[in-house]
Measured scan of single mutants.
Amino acid sequence: GIQEIVAMSPELDTYSITKRVKEVLTDNNLGQRLFGESILGLTQGSVSDLLSRPKPWHKLSLKGREPFVRMQLWLNDPHNVEKLRDMKK
């Protein structure tokens, strides 16, 4: 599951990941809330907090790293936007 992926993950640049996620969401007119609930399993508040103030990787616990790994996996998925759009319906 995701825990193994997080444990094996190389250090991620949390700042550039969140910046990229925000760009993709904005460009495709997708909400942070939808993204947070569907992709990260987080509430709106947690998501906007994460996206606006990402902590550096080395300061995060494994649990804290999980959303960033999920974001990275989502960014790597060529169908990420379509999938999210489908969830919106």
Rank of each mutant, 00 (worst) to 15 (best):
E66Y: 05
A7G: 11
T18L: 03
R33W: 06
F35I: 00
H79Y: 13
L60C: 05
I39Y: 06
N28K: 08
R53Q: 08
E23Q: 13
Q3R: 08
L51I: 05
R53L: 05
K55W: 05
K55T: 12
L62Q: 15
V69D: 04
Q44G: 12
L73N: 10
T43P: 15
D27M: 13
D49T: 09
S46C: 11
M8Y: 10
R65Q: 05
S61Q: 02
Q44P: 15
L62N: 14
P10D: 13
Y15K: 13
P54H: 03
K88R: 08
K88N: 13
L40C: 05
A7I: 08
V21C: 05
L42M: 10
D49N: 15
E66Q: 06
V24Q: 05
V69H: 05
N76D: 15
L30W: 02
Y15W: 08
L75D: 00
L30F: 09
L25H: 01
V81W: 04
K89H: 10
L51R: 02
E23M: 11
R53A: 07
D49P: 09
K55Y: 07
N29Q: 13
S38W: 08
D13Q: 00
S46Y: 08
L51P: 00
R85I: 14
H79Q: 14
V6A: 10
Q44E: 11
R20V: 03
W57R: 01
A7Y: 07
H79E: 13
K22S: 10
K88I: 07
P78F: 05
Q72M: 15
R70A: 06
L42I: 14
R85M: 15
T18W: 03
F68G: 03
S46T: 10
G45R: 11
N28S: 05
S9G: 09
G41H: 15
L50E: 01
K59F: 05
G1W: 09
L84D: 00
R65V: 00
Q44H: 12
M71I: 04
V24F: 03
E82M: 06
S48F: 10
V81Q: 03
Q32D: 13
K88V: 08
Q32I: 15
D86W: 08
R20C: 05
R70H: 05
V81P: 03
R70Q: 15
S48R: 14
G36Y: 07
T14E: 00
K22D: 04
N29P: 04
L40P: 03
R85V: 12
L84P: 00
Q44W: 11
D13N: 11
L12Y: 04
G31T: 13
F35T: 01
V21T: 03
R20A: 11
H79K: 15
E66S: 03
L12G: 02
L30A: 02
L40N: 02
Q72P: 05
I39S: 00
Q32T: 15
G41Q: 06
T43L: 03
K55I: 06
P67I: 05
G31A: 10
N28W: 02
S48L: 12
D77E: 08
S52Y: 05
E66K: 06
L75M: 05
Q32L: 14
S46K: 14
G41C: 06
Q3M: 13
Y15E: 09
Q32E: 14
H79S: 12
E11L: 04
K88L: 05
R53N: 12
Q72A: 13
D49R: 01
T26N: 14
D27Q: 12
E4Q: 12
L34K: 11
G1Y: 15
N80Y: 02
N29W: 03
E66T: 05
D13R: 00
G1D: 14
V24I: 14
L50G: 01
G45Y: 09
P54F: 01
K22A: 07
R65N: 06
Y15M: 15
L50S: 04
S61L: 03
L51Y: 03
N28L: 03
P67L: 12
P56T: 03
H79D: 13
D27N: 15
F35E: 00
V21F: 01
D13G: 01
L34N: 06
L25D: 03
D77F: 03
V21Q: 01
N28I: 01
P67D: 10
K19S: 10
W57Q: 01
P10E: 12
K22M: 14
N80R: 12
T43Y: 14
V6G: 09
N76L: 09
L42W: 06
K83F: 07
I17S: 00
Q32V: 14
R20W: 00
S16A: 14
I5W: 10
E23G: 07
T18Y: 04
T26F: 10
I5L: 14
I2Y: 10
S16N: 15
E82I: 11
L25A: 01
E66H: 00
E66I: 11
V24Y: 04
A7C: 07
I39V: 14
V24T: 11
E37M: 05
D77G: 03
F68H: 01
S61K: 04
W74E: 01
K89M: 15
R70W: 02
L51C: 00
D27S: 13
T43S: 14
T14G: 01
L40V: 05
D86V: 11
K63F: 13
G31V: 02
G64S: 08
R33M: 10
L30Y: 03
E11H: 10
L25W: 01
V6M: 09
K19M: 12
L73T: 12
A7F: 05
E82R: 11
G1F: 11
M8L: 11
W57A: 00
D77N: 05
Y15D: 14
M71C: 07
Q72R: 10
I2Q: 06
M87V: 13
T14Q: 02
E11N: 07
V6K: 09
L51W: 03
R65F: 01
D77V: 03
V6W: 04
T18H: 01
P78T: 10
K19Q: 10
K59N: 11
S16T: 13
T26C: 14
F68A: 00
N28E: 06
F35L: 04
K63H: 15
D13Y: 02
T26Q: 13
R70S: 05
M71A: 03
G36M: 09
R85G: 08
D86T: 09
V24W: 02
S52L: 11
S16I: 13
K83S: 09
Q44T: 12
S48E: 12
T43W: 04
L34R: 07
I2T: 07
R85S: 10
S48Y: 07
M8S: 14
V47L: 14
S38Y: 15
T26A: 15
S48K: 13
S9V: 08
S48Q: 08
P54R: 02
K63Y: 04
V69Q: 08
L73E: 14
P67V: 06
V24S: 03
E11I: 05
N28M: 04
L12V: 07
G36V: 07
Q3W: 05
P10G: 13
D49M: 15
G31F: 00
P78R: 06
D27W: 08
L60V: 01
T43V: 06
P56R: 05
T26I: 12
V21K: 00
S9L: 06
M71L: 01
N76Q: 09
W74M: 00
P54D: 00
G45F: 08
W74A: 01
R65S: 03
P10H: 10
E82Y: 06
L62H: 08
E23S: 11
V69A: 04
R33Y: 06
L75T: 04
R53F: 15
H58Y: 08
L30V: 09
L25P: 00
M8T: 11
V69P: 01
K89G: 09
K22N: 14
W74D: 01
Q44C: 12
